[in-house]
């Protein structure tokens, strides 16, 4: 009985992975561009770091990298990852805390330059493009600052 249930869950997980993979399988031949793997994993609810993502890709890549990932290699590793609940979601309150750490003076906001510096020079730095996109969504255009509480609720809102 428990085994049946387990199998049912796995089959459910498989279908979900397959659906997500197919969205990026433009040629409908059960492969996706390796650059899309991050999007697929993350849209399945995982929060890997760039480093973890790279490890994951190395694991499923062909021996001689082709730039494409095959579904048959992706599926088992991804299933395992979801079943073992790796790369689990980071609680929302930690996200807010993170901004508060950066906001040393407790102003409730960060300057765009300030944030840019952290995001592009520290951690796993953002590309120019990522940074611009983030600011366009986050910054108050008049004051040139980020009210990060608002921004956090925007990032977290549509998760159900």
């Amino acid at each position: 009985m428990a085994e049946d249930r387990e199998n049912a869950i796995i089959s459910e997980v498989h279908k979900k992975i397959s659906d997500a993979f197919d969205v990026f399988d433009h040629e409908r031949n059960k492969t996706v561009d390796v650059r899309e793997i991050g999007t697929i994993i993350r849209s399945l609810g995982c929060f890997p770091t760039e480093g973890e993502l790279q490890e994951f890709i190395t694991e499923i890549e062909e021996e001689e990298a082709t730039g494409y990932i095959r579904f048959e290699r992706f599926l088992p590793t991804m299933t395992k990852l979801l079943m073992e609940r790796k790369f689990r979601p980071i609680p929302e309150d930690l996200l807010l805390q993170a901004f508060e750490v950066l906001d040393q003076e407790k102003k409730g906001h960060l300057g765009t330059e300030e944030l840019t510096k952290y995001m592009t020079q520290d951690g796993e730095p953002f590309t120019q493009e990522e940074m611009e996109e983030m600011l366009s969504a986050a910054a108050d255009p008049d004051k040139n600052v980020i009210f990060y509480k608002d921004f956090v609720s925007m990032l977290t809102v549509d998760d159900k």
């Binding site: 770091t49 760039e50 980071i90 993170a98 995001m119 951690g123 953002f126 990032l155």
Partner: peptide, 9 residues
Amino acid sequence: AALLIQRWY
């Protein structure tokens, strides 16, 4: 903090 924000974003 930066790393966490980047991951979230």
